[in-house]
Design a protein around this nucleic acid. Structure first.
Length: 296
DNA sequence: ACCCAGGCGTTCG
DNA sequence: CGAACGCATGGG
């Protein structure tokens, strides 16, 4: 990994454990378990802190007795936990910004936990927009359990996020009884169709710069500026992605500055304008500041 | 009962 | 153009 002095597995685990409705990964005895694709095949892996804390160790829990491309697993974890990041510049910047000062010391080593799956990174904002987080996680759990590839290992259910082709084959009427709004159900099926047909893919997005990628995503129905920037932050990892319209960001700013009410959009633009290439990490650390501290 | 939620698309003035 | 409004429903 890069910048091991600024890596804390514990901080990353704390963020990953924020919802008890999570079903794409589990935390067991300070280790991280999930299913992922290696060599195109589903594998259940356990990720643990290495001996000197400067690296992570991945163990294949299932299927047993089969060799899997180690590099695929390593690449996945690197992208998931942003192990290739270098936080030095961001930490230096936080000391110069009144809104961010102190975040580096409080949460040192927290990496911007991402989403290596494009379909997940595009559809999770659709699922979660406008509703409270608790209900959003409930809907996500239903979505994954109903439509994701599933495998049970040692009595635990592991899932892959649903494949676009599976969702593309649905009608919105399948989703509305599961308490997705009509609009969300429609956006999910439409987005899945666009991805299943290859009109939106890793390859389509990869060559685009920040503005072009944002425009491509916003062209999808149900994806506005907030959702597009979410995808650009969590999947594409554009460092300048900023979630201006985010209620969580607005609450974190209010809290840190002791404002009587949430900041106006104009005020928020003032606060965030200097962030530039630090915006994605700034937002993520401010989200972290809304979670309980580590030692509770 | 009321307001807000990690918004977005549509309609209105 | 920007502002206002409807969506759906859980949670405080």
């Amino acid at each position: 990994m890069n910048d091991p002095a600024n890596f804390s597995f514990q901080e990353c685990l704390h963020f990953l454990g924020r919802s008890d409705k999570e079903c794409l990964h589990y935390i067991v005895d300070g280790k991280l378990r999930r299913m992922l694709l290696a060599g195109g095949e589903p594998v259940v892996v356990e990720i643990a802190q290495g001996g000197d804390a400067a690296y992570l160790e991945a163990t294949v829990l299932a299927p047993a007795g089969v060799m899997f491309p180690e590099k695929d697993i390593q690449d996945f974890v690197t992208r998931w936990l942003h192990l290739d990041a270098d936080l030095g510049d961001f930490y230096a910047y936080t000391q110069t910004d009144p809104l961010l000062r102190g975040l580096a010391a409080e949460y040192r080593g927290l990496r911007l936990v991402g989403m290596p799956d494009l379909f997940e990174a595009v559809t999770w904002p659709i699922i979660g927009q406008q509703i409270n987080l608790s209900f959003a996680y409930t809907l996500r759990q239903r979505f994954i359990r109903h439509f994701g590839y599933h495998q049970q290992v040692d009595g635990t259910d592991y899932y892959l996020y649903p494949h676009p082709a599976v969702i593309a084959s649905l009608t919105p009427e399948v989703l509305t009884p599961m308490q997705f709004s009509r609009s969300k159900a429609q956006y999910l099926v439409e987005t899945a169709t666009v991805m299943a047909s290859g009109q939106l893919s890793e390859q389509v997005l990869a060559p685009l710069d920040y503005a072009a990628a944002r425009d491509r995503l916003v062209a999808l129905k149900g994806i506005g500026n907030w959702s597009a920037n979410y995808t650009l932050m969590k999947y594409s990892r554009f460092p300048q992605a900023v979630l201006l319209e985010d209620a969580g960001l607005q609450n974190a700013v209010r809290q840190r500055l002791q404002l009587p009410a949430k900041p106006s959009m104009a005020a928020l633009q003032e606060y965030t304008r200097p962030w530039q290439q630090h915006a994605a990490y700034a937002v993520f650390y401010l989200w972290r500041s809304l979670l309980p501290p580590l030692n509770v």
